[in-house]
Design a protein around this nucleic acid. Structure first.
Lengths: 185, 185
DNA sequence: ATAAACTTTCAGTAATTTCTGAAAGTTTAT
DNA sequence: ATAAACTTTCAGAAATTACTGAAAGTTTAT
């Protein structure tokens, strides 16, 4: 069966956004289709609904699986493969976040570590190294913070997010209760 | 003068990562070059150092300025334009973050709001709408949290990041001191 | 007003990414 | 062992994105 207008607009939009989120148009569409569908979706249905080649679907599914966003779902009597989302919306969002960190930050962090090992060869380089150190420290702090937050688990994280700006007030409170650990950069 | 090997590897790397960070290779290289340079850099120097056409430099600078990552810097006796970073590394990182949010999240949020206004036409749609609601709420929470965090300013944010997982303990503490506001999802 | 030193724009080309479809591969049933 | 129903792979085509360089624009100096 073809998609409803609601599904169609959502799927198209996720396709457009796909680029920005790290995968391509059709992969984005496929993800949306699988997530929004009531029932498990077969590769052939995806190709039909999105009007793309069967081969493209196969590659897209491979990519979505490598991101751990969808997984195969064996339907007893059926011979073909069906696919379903690999977790709740929350989990999927986390996976995208994490995967992007791996692709966008980790390689840079590792290069920076290497570049900062060598002593600067001249004054231009030492200015550059100062900047690179700043970048390195920032990325490292962001990475480890995001790891720690993820480790908190969804419920605590959600409490924290609901707390919002309140976290600022909490910090002050804590500074008063447990002075010592400075808060300046 | 040509770049030192240190600068060259950093610049090349930032170029490669450029794609992933939302701009293209040469724009990434240009940003790195400007940030790492000791002195303000002219458009012509950029073209020479990176071996790209003068026209490309002009478009790249326009884009970097639209992201508010670099800004022109008038050197008294000189006729040509020079460019410098539009702030500290911290500020630049914030701008990239913010700008990407605008491009990657805001349009989706606005589409989702629209799609959720209409009543579902059938059961497939109501399942889809439930999922879309989840996505909407998640993106909205993430957006407003990130806005609130940015509003805290660098120093408090840094304290918070240093606190790391300690924030979990803090939440428990707070639950004991100020019970009532539940923490379940 | 002219020229010199610079900048931007943009049509066309080049590079890269994505997609197709036919061929080869796999699994299950008979 | 053969065939039917499916899947994956991958070379080449199509679509998209990035880059060049020449022409047009701007500013400053004379």
């Amino acid at each position: 069966m073809p998609m409803t207008p609601l599904m169609t607009s959502a799927v198209m939009h996720f396709g457009e956004m796909g680029n920005r989120w790290g995968f391509n148009r059709t992969v984005g569409q496929m993800l949306a289709l699988i997530v929004l569908s009531e029932a498990p979706v077969s590769a052939q249905e995806i190709a039909d609904d999105l009007n793309i080649s069967r081969g493209n679907v196969s590659m897209g599914l491979k990519e979505l699986q490598s991101w751990r966003l969808v997984k195969p779902h064996l339907v007893p009597g059926e011979r073909k493969d069906f696919f379903i989302p690999a977790g709740s919306v929350w989990e999927l969002a986390n996976r995208v976040f994490e995967e992007r960190r791996k692709r966008e930050i980790d390689p840079t962090l590792s290069l920076l570590r290497d570049l900062l090992l060598d002593a600067p060869a001249n004054t231009g380089d030492s200015q550059a190294q100062r900047k690179l150190t700043e970048i390195h420290d920032l990325l490292e702090a962001a990475t480890s913070w995001s790891e720690e937050l993820q480790a908190l688990g969804p419920d605590k994280l959600q409490t924290l997010m609901k707390l919002g700006a309140g976290v600022g007030r909490m910090l002050e409170l804590k500074d008063k209760l447990l002075p010592g650990k400075s808060s300046s950069n």
